[in-house]
Design a protein around this nucleic acid. Structure first.
Length: 407
RNA sequence: CGGGGCAUAGUGAAACGGCUAUCACGAGUCCUUUGGGAGGAUUUAUUCUGAGUUCGAAUCUCAGUGCCCCGACCA
């Protein structure tokens, strides 16, 4: 993608009033535009990141036999009255209060499955969607970390008995860890025991990523590494230890054993009359974008992990209007494209070198390749990784092979 | 939902109740420029909305709206 054609814009100044680091960097870099508190447009750069993350999540859900569906966002009042959750504060109501905007989908999936699960022959079932959620937040804040409208993956599992749920629940846990690993968050993400909330009688598990931008407090057992959310923390770990570290963390996922709570309401039954057992599993996609930004940045901008970066290579032409250098940069752009490398090509010829380089740091694409008169004298280009300081010259002839080994 | 702060070009800022609301950057046009935000010329506003005080309001008062932060809440 040529940067002259890319629909976005970077900003030199931090947005006024915006304290949250992810909001500052995402807005300044032109990844997102804020329409209102907690309501964002994802511009091409930001959407590429969202899509990268969604695809990682999709692959991992498919790996545990999840099947993707897409549920509606307009929800009739009646279906929510079944479970008694029509009047919760989260619900945005529209159309004279006969429709609500979906803030979660237990009711919808349960009433759907009522038609498709007629006996234990139809079990187990694992279905998920990646979709928008609306939530009437009393206080949207912290950039994309807590929005009133956001992207979320929600997986629902249906089983004939508890044992089967328990087994699948463990598989989902592992799949979630693979998602966080692939997003670069593994070291800082802890499986955390938390309250079940209104969804579940038993406890739930959260996946909490340690960051000062987080709004939860968790206690991590120094002995066994299990974490506890402050809301249920009793000062003593299951392993017997009472030695903990306290951390601020952001909840990047949450899994629940719903048991028969919704199957009872919506009449999901096995042939012997017992209730179907359910689990549900959520990952906040756009929250993950924010968490990654909070985690990976420096004073110049974002440092995307390669797996979620909007592009792999940022090619920068410092040609000074010199048509020979420009032609050479075009040629290198072609080489990169032919190698199937996702490349953003800064071919702007009306920008000073400093502005291009600063934009490059702000956007945080993992690998920078500079073409200039200086490098062309050596028949080379200059490579620099965003997360490193050192640069190196690579002969243009050898570039293709070099990148094959790098990426 | 309680508490606090803020609201002026696209962005960031300035302006004692009083002169034509100022500056920087950005953006448009023309020229010169290109290794860390370069220079010149020129263009770029309903001071959030509504009411009030006053000879006179960006500035003071009241109400509303929006945004940010703390707390409460929170798949």
């Amino acid at each position: 993608m040529k940067q002259t054609e890319l629909f976005t814009k970077t900003f030199k100044e931090n947005p006024k009033d915006e304290v949250s680091l992810n909001a500052r960097l995402l807005i300044r870099g032109g990844f997102v535009d804020k329409l209102s508190a907690g309501i964002y447009t994802f511009l091409p750069l930001g959407l590429r990141v969202v899509n990268k993350i969604e695809n990682i999540v999709r692959e991992e859900m498919n790996n545990i036999e999840g099947q993707e569906i897409l549920m509606p966002l307009l929800h009739p009042k009646e279906i929510w009255e079944e479970s008694g959750r029509w009047n919760v504060p989260e619900m945005y109501k529209i159309k004279d209060e006969n429709l609500g905007l979906g803030w979660t989908h237990e009711e919808i999936i349960s009433s759907l499955m009522k038609k498709y699960i007629l006996s234990s022959k139809d079990l187990p079932r694992y279905v998920y969607q990646i979709n928008t959620k609306f939530r009437n937040e009393p206080r949207a804040k912290s950039g994309v970390l807590r929005g009133r409208e956001f992207r979320m993956k929600d997986l629902y599992s249906f089983h004939s008995n508890e044992k089967e749920l328990d087994e699948y629940y463990e598989r989902v846990k592992q799949a979630y860890f693979r998602v966080y690993e692939r997003c670069g968050l593994k070291e800082k993400t802890y499986l955390t025991k938390a309250a079940g909330g209104e969804f579940s009688e038993s406890l739930s598990h959260e996946f909490q990523t340690i960051t000062s931008a987080g709004e939860d407090i968790i206690y991590i057992c120094k002995k066994c590494g299990v974490a506890f959310n402050k809301e249920i923390f009793k000062g003593r770990c299951d392993c017997g230890s009472e030695d903990f570290t306290e951390e601020k963390a952001i909840e990047v996922g949450n899994i629940f054993k719903l048991g028969n709570k919704y199957s009872k309401v919506f009449g999901l039954k096995n042939e012997d009359g017992s209730n179907v057992i359910m689990g549900c599993y959520g990952i906040g996609i756009t929250r993950l974008v924010g968490a990654i930004v909070e985690m990976f940045n420096d004073d110049k901008g974002i440092i995307w992990p390669e797996t979620v970066a909007p592009f792999t290579v940022h090619l920068i032409s410092l040609d000074g209007g010199d048509s020979e250098i420009e032609a050479k940069a075009d040629e290198i752009y072609g080489i990169l494209q032919n190698s199937n490398i996702e490349v953003l090509y800064d071919n702007r010829n009306d920008k000073a070198a400093g502005e291009k380089l600063n934009d490059c740091d702000l956007l945080g694409i993992p690998l920078r390749i500079v073409v200039s008169g200086k490098t062309l004298k050596e028949e080379s280009v200059e490579l620099k990784k965003r997360k490193e300081v050192k640069t190196e010259l690579v002969k243009i002839k050898e570039l293709k092979d070099f990148l094959k080994n790098e990426t």
